[in-house]
Design a protein around this nucleic acid. Sequence first.
DNA 1: TTGACTACTTACCTGTAGGTAGGTAACTTT
DNA 2: AAAGTTACCTACCTACAGGTAAGTAGTCAA
Lengths: 189, 189
Amino acid sequence: MLANTTKEKIVELGRGFIQHGGYHQFNYKQIATELNIKNAAIHHYYPSKEDLGLAVIEKDKQYFEQMNKRVEDKIPMEKIEALFKIYYDYFNDGNKICIIGTFSSAYNEIPEKIQKGAKDYLELVNKWLITTFESGRKSGHFKFKGTAKDLADFWVATLTGAIQIGRIRGAGYFRQILKNLKMTLDSDC
Amino acid sequence: MLANTTKEKIVELGRGFIQHGGYHQFNYKQIATELNIKNAAIHHYYPSKEDLGLAVIEKDKQYFEQMNKRVEDKIPMEKIEALFKIYYDYFNDGNKICIIGTFSSAYNEIPEKIQKGAKDYLELVNKWLITTFESGRKSGHFKFKGTAKDLADFWVATLTGAIQIGRIRGAGYFRQILKNLKMTLDSDC
DNA sequence: TTGACTACTTACCTGTAGGTAGGTAACTTT
DNA sequence: AAAGTTACCTACCTACAGGTAAGTAGTCAA
C-alpha cells in the first residue's frame, strides 16, 4: 500500500473497508475518521459513493496487473502461487474477501456502473486463469482433463466461495481448499 | 412459501430480501411496503433486525431439513439433485444467493448471534454433504478420491461462489459449475 | 502580487434507518 | 361482561447516511 496522497489513501482505505464489510456496510465516515479529515473532503475527491466504488475496482485491478507483470516470466505454478498469495493476504489482513466476491454478493443492489466494473474485472481474471492454465498444460507443468476455460470458471467460483466460507470456518479450512484446488492441476481427470 | 400469518410472511419476505441484497442492504421498510403494514408492526414480531435475521436463518434451516426428509429414502444422486434444485430455485427467483453466502460475505459486520447462527447452519449442511457422500460411496453410486469431508468442504466453497459469480456471468455459467461439481462424484481421482 | 487552483473545513440539508411509546380495535378467555 | 391478549397503527425519536454550498488557507504560476 504505497499511498502517498490523500486521494490514494482514500481509495486504499475504501478498498479495505469494502473488502471487510461490503459495499453497503462501508461508509465515508470510516475513511474520514481513519484519515482525520472531514466527510466532505472525501466527496471532494470522489463526489459519490459510486465514484469511489469504481475507483476501488480500478485499484484492485491495478494490483492484479502488477502481480501479472511480476510473474510473467515465471513458471505457471509460480503464477498460481502469486494469485493464492493475494488471497492469503486478504484473508490474513482482517478477514477480507476479494473485491469480486463483495460485489457479486451485493450485485443486485449496486449501481450499474459498478456492476459493469466488477463484471469486466471478473472477465479479466478469468482470462488470465485460462491463459495460465493453457500455457501450463502446453509446457507440461499442469495436467488436467477438460478445457482450460471450464477449469478457470470452476476456480473462480471456488476461490470466491473459499475465502468467504473461510471467514466462518477459519484459516485451516481456507488453506485446505486452496490446496485441493491446486491438485486439480496435477491430475488426469 | 406457505406463509399464512403475518409473522410468517415477515420472515419469509425478510429471507428473500436478505438473499437478494444482503443483510445490510435489506431493511424493514421493504417488508412493510410489501405487506401493507407499518414498520412498527414488524418490530412487534421481531423487536430488532438481529431477531429477524436469526429467524431467517432458522427458516432457511427448516426448508433444508424438509428437503432432507423428502429425499431420505432416495438414492444419493437424488439427494444431491434436491440440493441443487434449491440453488437453482434461488438463482431463478431474482438472482438470490444462499443464506450462508450472504452472511459469510457480510460476516465481519453482523451481530455475533447471527454469526453463530450462520456457522451452525453451515456445519449442518456440511455434515449432510459428508453423510450423503459417504453413503453414496458405500453403495457404489459415487466414486471419488480423498475423504468425504474434504470433498464436502470443497463443495461448500464452490456452491457458495458459483451462485454469486453466476449473478454476474449468467445462468449458463452457473449450470456449468454445478455440472462439473457433479462430475467430482464419478471420478477415480 | 495577483489570480487561479488545490485541499480541504464548516455548516447544513434530506432521506432513511432502526427503534420505541402509547393507543386502539378486535378477539379470547374466564 | 370484564379482563387480558393480540395485532396492529400513529406518532415520534435518534442516529447517521450521502451529499452540497460556501468559505478559507496555502501553493503555484504569470
